[in-house]
Design a binder for these strands. Structure first.
Lengths: 209, 209, 209, 209
DNA sequence: CATGAATGAGCTTTCATTCAT
DNA sequence: TATGAATGAAAGCTCATTCAT
């Protein structure tokens, strides 16, 4: 490679970097590395290499390794939260909002296999401290789910005396278990197609009419 | 040795091991150590000390550390499976069987705080391989749940077209999420009291009548 | 460039540097940072920040970090040397000159706590190379001490057959040990008051008359 | 090497090890490694290799690296202390005791070049915490020196009004400076021969009679 | 002259597992 | 069977120095 081609190569690489600030670059690299190597094999050096930066550069943007992992969760979770906020703002029934939530939850993970592996399998191997951090991030999401449920009760769509915490745990626990199974089965079947049935089960339960 | 004789040899050795008091001693010690120190602080040497044996002795009964952990899960899961088998044999409706399953699941973990911490929080930090192993153990339990669901459909108690896999994931995911939340909240409230409501939600869903 | 022209070039560059305010700024910043944070916590970035310059600027004035530290020692040592030169020029006995030297040595460090910490404790943590450099700087000072001793012998004030090197090591070793103890005791007592006794001990020894 | 010769080789190595318990083995290895590589290049792995043990074995005998270094100082210092205790017990004048102390101090370091390098140059590069530890160890030694001085005053051998702390600092500072210079000059001259002159200087001072 | 973002080499310590007794 | 001393691989983080701007 002569020094001209090096120069242009440099420009391309640089503009890629500039368009994706290093912070995002590293977070995205972490998702890929964790998904492909597993949580315990996701060394900082691997993440750095994947991000195209030096090991030390990581520490200009993150306090420590745990900080990277929490950031991964926070950054990606914000996709769910933002979508859910839009759904909440829509002028539709609570039942429809719940449906859209399930559908959104499934779609985001369906469309990003790496992310699905990371959130459903890998990040759960983190230690208790990190898991508490992750739970804090989750709280925002679950608070929005609670709002759907509360509004549904208010509008008479959902069972009047329903325990919101239990209902939330049923909705989230169900979605989570279904997605984890799907990931552990190597994402063989079409997750999206399950949404209507899941929604129906949650709304009307298992009892025959 | 062909694979048949290997299989029988395996069965004999396994049953011998499990009858030996030290095997159980070590498994029980592992539960205590993991519950009190957390998964990542549960070194083999700590388990050995708690069991009152030398480090090396562990390896006379277990192939490696992962083998201890899988054994913990298998031994303890058998309590759930045995109870559930009794429930299945009872002459009651499928709905009642489901209720008893939930009640049993909650009760076992409610009555053994160490076990609850280990199964809901600590063992989930294990790596993918171990979690696949654990899932295999779980399968027996979930197969029994599937039988309740299939019988319920057959007898017209549960929705005819219901997807059994989804329903199973809803039931298990809901129970699991509820128990995990309870453990993470330091087991502050009475888990047992939730069983009727959980059962009602799973049966009739959230929709107002 | 032959070694003569190199030598003069060196002199010019050196004198240019030392007149530049930033050079002194950085040396003074280094003293403060080392005294307050300790040798091993005195990162180049901290010194730069304390001096109010960018990290990179340091390298316009110093070859590397070691060069800063040697410069600190050289700059500060020159105070001792200059004072000692004045003392040597005074028209007093050698014994009096020795007294004034001790008194000066104590006074300079007594009046600059930061400097005392840096020279007695922190700079001694440097590696062998740097300590050899520091010793070179010290040589000028010790050479002046040797002159006091030689003159004293010549004038019949000091013991005729006295080994000058040993005597120098006794004088310097004694002063150094006393000051280091004083610094390690957090400079609790009055160093200056010790000068007469130290002088007396060095002159007449411990033996009872 | 056939397995017989391996066996005998093994016996020899083992008996060497057994005669020198691992603790001492490691301390001695540390002295050699520090002397030959310098304090900052004395990695735990090098010490382990020199001691003929695995890295991990170090940590069966020492809390951490600092613990090795403190132990080096403590173990070696005890030679000085034990010798000095014998000297104190001798039925000779205080002046003679002082002489023997100097002679002993010089001899121990003169006879172990590695140790001389380690105590005079390398260990002084340790951080403040370690140096405080080292100072604690030194205190025992200096306390014995103080006893010689106090007894000398009592018996009218040493100057009546003499400040013991100052005198101790003169004696130790002088010895220390002389030895350090000798080490920095690559131990070129005969340290032992200096003892009488040093003693004379300390006793009678520099002043001409 | 001055900047400061980026670099990347380097090392202590833990702990699952082995194996001579 | 049981022991427990010994092993040795493996990784997060710091910071002196550079160099494009």
């Amino acid at each position: 490679m002569n020094h001209h081609s090096y120069f242009f190569f440099y420009l391309v690489v640089e503009s890629l970097k500039r368009n994706k600030p290093k912070y995002k670059q590293i977070v995205d690299a972490a998702v890929v590395v964790i998904a492909e190597n597993g949580y315990h094999q996701a060394q900082v050096s691997k993440i750095a290499k994947q991000a195209g930066v030096a090991d030390g550069t990581i520490y200009l943007y993150f306090k420590n390794k745990e900080d990277i992992l929490v950031s991964v969760f926070r950054e990606k979770m914000s996709i769910f939260v933002e979508n859910l906020q839009k759904i909440l703002g829509a002028d539709v029934s609570s039942e429809e909002k719940l449906y859209r939530m399930i559908e959104n939850h499934f779609r985001v993970l369906h469309s990003d296999h790496h992310l699905a592996i990371v959130t459903q399998l890998e990040l759960r191997q983190s230690n208790k401290d990190l898991r508490h951090e992750i739970n804090n991030v989750l709280k925002d999401y679950l608070a929005l789910l609670d709002r759907i449920l509360a509004e549904g009760i208010e509008q008479g769509e959902f069972e009047k005396g329903m325990d919101i915490r239990l209902a939330r745990q049923m909705v989230f626990g169900t979605m989570d278990e279904i997605i984890t199974s799907w990931v552990m089965n190597d994402q063989k079947y079409d997750l999206m197609k399950l949404a209507p049935n899941v929604h129906r089960l949650l709304m009307k339960g298992m009892k025959a009419d």
